[in-house]
Design a protein around this nucleic acid. Structure first.
Length: 535
DNA sequence: ATAGGGTTAG
């Protein structure tokens, strides 16, 4: 009953993207998953994403480690594992080093997989390769007898996380016996390095797929900008009668979020509720983001309110949500509520709060938030300086922003220059804009955005000679800027638009509405046009 | 031992 409700609805989006339409008859409604899913979900131990679980496990391990007069490998292993789960892989490695110096407690067969996991999390290829060398030396992993168990899988995962898919596949190809974990690690590795085609080949080729295989492939599509493929694959798993879990639905919700299909999002949310899945972890975060991006900030807030023990990611996603809607005061209000509820902000939280300030024009508040970072021992990192540049230049303080860039510790990237260029266009600051645009063209000659921004600035000012010059430059350098387009789902139908098109049967009414909005805006003193200057 | 969430420009 649960699933059939969702999938029996028309899905024009699938035909839009050329995927086959779903067959509606294969799975009877009686075999839908909620009941089994509820019991599975309630039996599963809390994931490491859950704040309380990670803390208590770490506390237990630390307690035993500090109280025990004679440490055994078991004590070391538990602490290393707990530190990994608490996302503290650096400290896990220090504990391992301490273990190596403790003659009464040599590493056992459980130790190295944990340590390899720390290396994977850190991206520490050198240390990981040292362990690999050690294993070859003591004949656990030799040329003739390549390890076939968890150690080999941990090595594969480590090389994948460190961006060495070549070394990972070398190991994988030489394994005498591969299990599902070996295949899944390789699928994830290929997806993470952008080779989604190879990931899919392995997925199709592997002898038996488990839920992790499906989840890796679905989220792989999402991370490679193919949300429609992700949804197609999920629908296929449903046809095969495979029970999704929380992770599956995180991928599905992210895909829907990228497509901006609110109707699909609501049906998926209903499905999640009927399955009895917890929204206390990653699933809650992706639901908040999905409602935000699909235009429903009020529902996003309702989901946020319903989450019992909110972690920093929950807070950050709703703060970022209000920021995106221009409700800067609400963002700041939530930020202070978060601080008083005892949840510690991290660097992503600060990026979101600074973003809220710059979109709301709250320069002074933004500066205060920037100073507050130090008291929490965070950053500021490059991205926070980028937000500060945006904060200043957006509110017209372009000179000050330039001055700030001059004081930065590192070289500002194309994003920072692009921010400044966009602000210059909005404030008609042509001299600085030209300088920056030329700098950007040198820095990133293949990036079409800088040419387009400059050409639009010339168009704003009626300098058509310079305008055609920038267009010629684009042609000469072989730069292409694919025009953006947008789409919206209304009652199950997808409507697609490009800038200024007249394809929609109701385009006259739509442009009338836009014209009315423009009129209201200019009456309120806002110099803005929905039409591009080229049109 | 494998999968999953939150950020910055246009």
């Amino acid at each position: 009953m649960a699933w059939s409700q969702w999938r029996s609805l028309p899905s024009p989006f699938l035909s839009l993207h050329g995927a086959p339409r779903e067959a509606h008859h294969r799975r009877s409604s009686a075999s839908s998953p909620p009941f089994s899913a509820i019991s599975a979900a309630s039996l599963r131990p809390p994931r490491h994403g859950g704040r309380t679980a990670a803390v208590s496990e770490l506390e237990l391990a630390l307690f035993a480690f500090t109280r025990e007069p004679k440490l055994s490998p078991f004590h070391y292993n538990s602490l290393i594992r707990a530190l990994n789960r608490a996302r503290l892989p650096g400290r896990a490695l220090s504990v391992f080093v301490q273990m190596l110096h403790d003659p009464s407690s040599p590493p056992d067969r459980f130790t190295l997989p944990f340590v390899l996991k720390s290396c994977a999390q850190l991206g520490a290829i050198e240390e990981g390769a040292q362990i690999h060398g050690l294993l070859v030396k003591i004949h656990v992993v030799s040329e003739e007898d390549v390890g076939a168990g968890s150690l080999a899988n941990a090595l594969i995962h480590m090389y994948c996380q460190c961006g060495r898919i070549d070394l990972a596949s070398e190991l994988f190809n030489r394994m005498p016996r591969r299990n599902d974990v070996s295949w899944n690690s390789m699928i994830d590795g290929f997806a993470k390095c952008g080779d989604i085609v190879s990931a899919r080949l392995l997925f199709d080729e592997m002898p038996s797929r488990n839920i992790v295989s499906w989840n890796s492939m679905i989220s792989g599509y999402v991370h490679n900008g193919l949300p429609d493929e992700a949804l197609s694959l999920f629908l296929r798993s449903q046809e095969l009668g495979i029970d999704p879990d929380e992770s599956t639905m995180v991928g599905v919700i992210s895909a829907i979020s990228d497509l901006g299909l609110l109707g699909w999002g609501k049906r998926a949310h209903g499905f999640i509720t009927r399955c009895g899945f917890s929204i206390g972890g990653a699933l809650g975060v992706s639901l908040i983001t999905m409602y935000t991006r699909c235009g429903s900030i009020s529902v996003a807030h309702r989901v946020f309110s319903d989450i019992p023990n909110k972690n920093v990611a929950h807070w950050t996603s709703i703060i970022a949500g209000y920021a995106a809607y221009g409700f800067a005061e609400d963002s700041l209000q939530l930020f202070s509520e978060m601080l008083s509820s005892g949840v510690k902000p991290n660097c992503i939280t600060f990026t979101s709060v600074l973003n809220a300030c710059s979109h709301g024009g709250l320069v002074e508040e933004g500066m205060k938030v920037f100073d507050l970072m130090r008291t929490y021992g965070i950053g500021p990192h490059q991205q926070h300086y980028g937000c500060l540049v945006d904060l200043l230049s957006r509110s017209g303080l372009v000179e000050e922003a330039l001055e700030l860039i001059g004081c930065l510790p590192g070289e500002p990237g194309p994003v920072v220059w692009g921010t400044l260029l966009a602000a210059c266009r909005n404030h008609g600051n042509i001299v600085i804009a030209e300088t920056i645009a030329h700098k950007l063209m040198e820095l990133e000659p293949d990036y079409g955005g800088s040419y387009v921004l400059l050409s639009k600035l010339y168009a704003d000012l009626g300098r058509w000679g310079d305008f055609s010059w920038t267009r010629k430059m684009m042609e000469e350098n072989g730069v292409e800027k694919t025009p953006g387009f947008s789409w919206i789902e209304v009652d199950g139908d997808i409507h697609k638009f490009v800038m200024g098109d007249k394809f929609h049967p109701k385009h006259r009414e739509m442009y009338n509405v836009l014209g009315g909005m423009e009129h209201h805006l200019s009456w309120a003193g806002c110099r803005f046009s929905f039409r591009d200057s080229e049109q």
